[in-house]
Design a protein around this nucleic acid. Sequence first.
RNA 1: GCGCUCGUAGCUCAGCUGGAUAGAGCAUCUGACUACGGAUCAGAAGGUCGGGGGUUCGAAUCCCUCCGAGCGCGCCA
Length: 535
Amino acid sequence: MDVRDQLRSGLRGALVAAGVDPVPAELGLERPANPEHGDWSSNVALATAKAAGRNPRELGQQLVEHLRADPPPHVSSVDLAGPGFVNFHLHDSWLHEVLRDIVDQGTAGFAVSSRGAGSSVNLEYVSANPTGPLHAGHARWAAYGDSLARLFTRCGYAVQREFYVNDRGVQTQLFGASLAARAAGEEPPEDGYHGEYVSEWAKEMPAEADPVAWGLERAHADQVEVMRSMNVEFDHWASEKRLVASGAMESVLAALRRTGHAFDADGATWLRTTEFGDDKDRVLVKSDGEPTYFLPDIAYHHEKYERGDLVVDILGADHHGYVTRMSAAMQALGHPAGSYEVLIGQNVTLVRDGQEVRLSRRAGNIVLARDLVELAGGDVARLTFLLQSIDTTQTIDLDVLVAESSENPVYYVQYANARVHSLARRAGEQGRARRPLVDVDLSLLTHPREVALARSLSELPDVVERAMEHRAPHQVTMWARECAAALHGFWHDCPILRDDIDEPLRQARMWLVEATRIGLGVGLGLLGVSAPESM
RNA sequence: GCGCUCGUAGCUCAGCUGGAUAGAGCAUCUGACUACGGAUCAGAAGGUCGGGGGUUCGAAUCCCUCCGAGCGCGCCA
């Protein structure tokens, strides 16, 4: 039972004693931003006073008195503050206990949550057409999707990362035709692909190759390579061609007909998406007998349920109009309303020479994911994307990215990690080994820098759960920066190997550093950024 | 016109789904242990949270309404 549970339990008892009925199932307990407000703070008095017809401060005072009479472990003082907050100040002993837990759990066990145990999630992201290189926007989804997958995994979900390859249809034909035209020294079709890469790839293409098939392979290989340089991998590559060949479209259409959600009108076949909140019904099969792109997509999403209880799409803002109809289709097929989730990410805007660079595939000035990686390196490129929420458009100034890449936050965090490892190296050189933790007195860790670092580490488990629930990997980035800052501050003020440091304190500090190694390792791992031992 | 997302320091962004005095990084200014790794640390300055109403003990956060930005509204993919 960790501190929070003990505090909650104490609060619950106090509420009962104060005659509050009913006692809420979830008791609000948070870490105040302002240290003067204690280590933990609860707003239960404020939250329950209204319903109980009580005065918040009066009720709060009763809670405080009850808790003072019988304080939970580690609690040094309980106070009433502000409009009715109950603030707990704890002895540093609770942090010392946390450090022991971190060391016991190690990188594999620390900040692991069982929130998703027994559930599975299928995450689809990027899914760019196999008709060219990935651009900077794709790279954002790659970094985001992969880190989100890592968060789900750490929270106990069985995760499948998936990329849907649209290796069939009009665009692939156009791409193949464009390659063939370039190979023959001609201009691509007007609605074909005009990027420079088409000409370059056409030179590589063997004369006897089928331009469509070869082009798909070439583009796919290019995309895989770039994502790998950003440490992004997939478990499953879903082929549209194979899906369609399997007859999945027909069986899904039959199922929709059987349940009455699909109907014929004006010579076409429609899905009654309005039944599930769409503003108009959508065509599945056109009057010329050809399916729209919507139908194979429905079949694909339906199939994904074989690989996850929760099916998640990560899409760019330009696809948000698509969400309602797909959600409607999934419900029409009998999937529970909440089981299909779409995460919409805003666009990436790139600035070069103070000018916005348009991400147009037709124009030649498109900035590729590959450019970013070559400019700044995989770690910097990746962390740059994970620096902010996907809810806001991201502006990346390429000149700043290059000029200040050495000031990128990724180095700040990696440097902290390198320092942690350098300590172990130097300690080894000096023959100063850590003694077993049971023999070490962590209560010597009372310096504000030591306490701040331990406190930062203690927050990671909450950060992981919250980041997963909010689908917000950037919160891990925020934490990693704070933890690195705490380490740097500690490093600056608290020498370890210096001769004038007493051995017991040295031992305690070495174990604090070991716990930091574990915490930073977990954080960097979730971000998919390397954790170098030296820089 | 309708819908979705957004508007927070000079710039780039956080803000734990309603909490206490709105926080970081960069840029600017001033400093630091005669460097267990200075890719570090400390301090200063910087705000009408786009404007205006409302809900309540309490609003950057929820509701309404304006203003502004991006994206979407095909029997295209």
